[in-house]
């Protein structure tokens, strides 16, 4: 076994910006120094497609730290891409700055398209063929999510067994939708590159506990894939939801300030209060949001301001 690893930092894609700078998407490739112990299995950890989702930043750091701590256990390739949308991360912008475009709606991109489409094309070219891609998201700035994996029903058979290794609390198999065909995960899965989409925590924050839970899951998954031979922690068995009506959505009936009453990831009974929408000008409660049936609250609103229709929570029916 090798006692060291190689860490190669390179640019996956580079595009000139107008004023003295280039947009560069960086990759850190970790692999055993001794090629004889390399199975050539490859896992890609992708994050930062949405510039306001930062949970993946800590996951990337912690994953590399743990691999470096025990280098002889690495027997495959770990590619880490912490910032797919570097300008977005740098400017606290969810989409691609300058284009007001959601980067996760432009895949598979185009070699001859606009700059954004070219970047998307290069990313697909780069990730295709990996044994597994894990695309880490952090909900958005409005909602907190329990660590979960979301899977398009088209890929249920392939991806649910992989998701079970990931130490998440919940796996949500959702209906196929044409509009989601522009996502990174859809493009890669349709090219036979298995890709898991993780949602955990909340935008603009790092929830250290969730991040460490995900790193435990990644280490375990790497072990299952033959990329890691070190010790791993036991992983939890996720709840897997694939019913079409398995999730209840709570949308704000009024505009106002949402004040949560229920705790995240707790079991609620029918009639329990999720939260109130209040009016700070009048002191009135504008709406009480209660559960229509029992279930587990796996999404809760973090950002207090709500418009009529804003999502304030999601309940997993049990």
């Amino acid at each position: 076994m090798s006692q060291e690893i190689i860490s190669q930092i390179s640019d996956v894609c580079q595009v000139k910006l107008p004023i003295g700078e280039s947009l560069k998407i960086k990759r850190n490739r970790l692999l055993p120094a001794d090629s004889a112990s390399n199975t050539n299995k490859r896992i890609c950890i992708v994050t930062g497609i949405h510039g306001d989702e930062l949970e993946g930043q800590y996951v990337c750091y912690e994953l590399i730290r743990r691999i470096r701590e025990n280098p002889e256990a690495l027997t495959g390739i770990v590619d880490v891409y912490p910032a797919m949308n570097p300008m977005g991360i740098d400017s606290v912008t969810r989409g691609i700055p300058g284009f007001d475009l959601d980067m996760n709606r432009i895949f598979p991109g185009s070699k001859d398209g606009a700059m954004t489409e070219y970047v998307a094309y290069k990313i697909i070219e780069e990730l295709s063929g990996a044994d597994l891609v894990v695309d880490i998201h952090a909900s958005n700035i409005y909602l907190t999510e329990i660590p979960q994996i979301r899977i398009n029903e088209l890929n249920e058979d392939t991806l649910v067994p992989l998701a079970r290794h990931m130490n998440v609390d919940f796996v949500w198999v959702h209906a196929s939708s044409t509009v989601l065909e522009s996502t990174l995960a859809y493009s890669l899965n349709s090219r036979a590159t298995p890709t898991l989409v993780v949602e955990a925590g909340v935008g603009m924050r790092i929830t250290k506990g969730y991040c460490e839970q995900l790193v435990d899951g990644l280490m375990n998954t790497m072990k299952e894939l033959g990329i890691w031979q070190g010790e791993v922690k036991p992983v939890r068995e996720p709840l897997v939801e694939n019913r079409t009506d398995g999730v209840v959505f709570f949308n704000a009936p009024k505009a106002g300030i949402f004040v949560p009453a229920a705790k995240h990831w707790t079991r609620l009974e029918k009639g329990d209060r999720v939260g109130n929408i209040v009016n700070p000008l009048t002191g009135d409660i504008l709406a009480e949001i209660v559960t229509p049936e029992k279930g587990i609250l796996f999404t809760i609103r973090e950002y207090p301001i709500v418009d009529e229709g804003s999502l304030v929570g999601r309940l997993l029916r049990i």
Binding site: Y142, V179, N251, E308, S310
Partner: peptide
């Protein structure tokens, strides 16, 4: 350009959903 609070695009929400999120409504 897009919706003030969540930056969603009304022209990416049709045919809409009257019990959904704001721009879907």
């Amino acid at each position: 350009r897009f919706w003030p609070t969540d930056n969603t695009d009304i022209n990416r929400m049709f045919p809409g959903y009257n019990e959904g999120e704001t721009t879907q409504r």
